[in-house]
Amino acid sequence: MEELKELYQQIILDHNKSPKNYGKMVNCTHASEGYNPLCGDRIKIYAKVENGVIEDIKFEGEGCAIAKASGSIMTALLKGKTVAEAQQLFEEFQHLITSDVRSNVDTEKLGKLAVFAGVREFPTRVKCAGLAWHTVKAAIEKKDEVVTTE
């Protein structure tokens, strides 16, 4: 039960229920689709990037609480960041969710992203947390193909 509470923290449940930046964007400059063939979940990311800065970002799609909360928290975090900063955050997030369960989490550096530390206890769910991030990376790097978690 402890691990479950660690995974499904209130903040994740809240973002799942009322995700931020959820929906389509018509005048986006970048877009990408992510797909997890394991569960059939799909996510779409739309971004408006001007002068190397992510001015606006939205997401939509089908997904579990972890995937949805990840998309919600991620978009809130990336709004106003530069593309280089977003790529840096992607690396940090990847490192967090794939790091050893026993390793310490730098909550100061990771801020809100630290709530996803609980996913490390659940190897089958790491891909759910990473889907939105992989998709945004593809979007801002202008890759057209559907990104999969495989």
Binding site: Y8, K17, C39, D41, C64, A65, K68, R125
Partner: peptide, 10 residues
Amino acid sequence: GIHPHDIGTW
């Protein structure tokens, strides 16, 4: 309101 994967994990 609850995705099957969350149910499976739970």
